[in-house]
Amino acid sequence: MKLTFLGTSAGRPTKARNVTSIALSLPEPQHCFWLFDTGEGTQHRLLGSKLKLNKLERIFITHLHGDHLYGLPGLLTSRSYFEGAVPLQIYGPPGLQAFIDCVFHQSGVHLGYELSITEIVSGQIVTDDFFTVEAAELEHRMQCFGYRVTEHSQPGKLNLPLLKTLGVPSGPMYGKLKQGEDVTLPSGEMIRSSDVVGPPVAGRIITILGDTRPCENAITLSKDADLIVHEGTFAGGMEEKAAAYGHSTVLQAAETAAKANVKQLVMTHFSSRFDDAAIELLVQDAKEIFANVSAAHDYLEINVDRVTSETD
């Protein structure tokens, strides 16, 4: 799984940073990606990446502020020009359907692919063979959600030397054992899956939070995650201003990461008042609270690898 940051500025773009959008590339066999927010210019940022719109499968909108949403109509329209575009599903707060309907009606849009829009409430919103996505409301100036993406655990590794010793022929029996089924050899001997398959490999957890003040739901969504993305709009010492605008400081983002026991924190959504040098200083301040923290920049790519046991 890989995150690609397509926009990392708060409120308005700068010369170096576009407004908010994050892509999550999924592992095989999906061969697709998801988007979290689509600030104005997101499709332009995609042109500078390896991501193709016909491989976009889902979009998750945190809230309806323009710096998280205004790129959506253009992106959806342009996607019709890509051959082989798979059906696209969009999830977001109430009002999203009306926004899209209004823009499409007034501009006469006709899409060349299947589009569905789901206006969400807190709870589980997506589940398939590989992932579950949960949403919860955060604390912002308007209704805003955070998303927790949980990869399902994978079967453990086959003990190939032991299988050879036991005389298990390679082929379908291997597959059954790996999926947890016991098998019987031609000799009548039963081979138990639990004896020849290692422990399951835990799935990865990635949490992407929308704009928010510090709140309990941010901690709950982030609990024990491999990586969380948290806004860092303001510097430490600006807590009063952050609260007034429904945002967090970098120190508050670090506190959330620490309380949630996450492995890695990536901060984004920086106020345009901060240049890259200033943001680096903000990161150093946050490290006093949570060590494994970094600042996102446009086109930053972060791989989130599976954690496997030492015996695998």
Rank of each mutant, 00 (worst) to 15 (best):
A218K: 00
A253V: 00
G180H: 11
N217T: 15
E189F: 14
R192F: 14
A225S: 15
I191V: 15
D195A: 13
E255K: 07
T220R: 12
E231C: 05
R204C: 10
V201R: 13
V201G: 06
E231V: 01
A243H: 10
Y245C: 06
A258F: 04
N217H: 14
R192I: 05
T233Y: 01
A243K: 09
K259R: 14
D182N: 13
T249V: 12
P214G: 08
A202G: 09
A260E: 04
L209M: 08
I208C: 05
D182G: 03
I208R: 01
T249K: 00
M190W: 03
I228T: 13
R213P: 05
G246H: 04
A254L: 07
K223I: 11
G232R: 00
A218G: 06
V229G: 03
V183F: 01
A254E: 02
P214C: 08
M238E: 06
V250L: 13
S194A: 14
G188M: 13
L221V: 08
Q252H: 08
L251R: 05
P186I: 02
R192T: 10
E216H: 11
L227S: 02
S248L: 14
V229S: 05
T233I: 04
A257K: 00
S187W: 07
K178D: 04
D224S: 14
E239D: 15
K241M: 12
A242N: 03
Y245H: 06
T184E: 12
T207C: 11
R204Y: 02
T207S: 15
P200M: 10
H230Y: 06
A202M: 08
M190C: 13
A202K: 11
K176A: 13
D195P: 07
T256K: 04
M190F: 04
T256I: 15
F234R: 03
G246M: 08
T220V: 08
V197D: 01
K241P: 00
A202E: 13
L221S: 02
A257V: 04
M238K: 03
D226Y: 11
S248T: 15
V183M: 04
C215F: 08
I208S: 03
A225N: 05
V201N: 08
L221W: 01
G237A: 14
D195Q: 14
S194Y: 08
P214H: 03
E181V: 11
E255R: 06
S194R: 13
L221F: 03
R192H: 14
L177Q: 03
K178N: 09
A253M: 07
C215Y: 08
T184V: 15
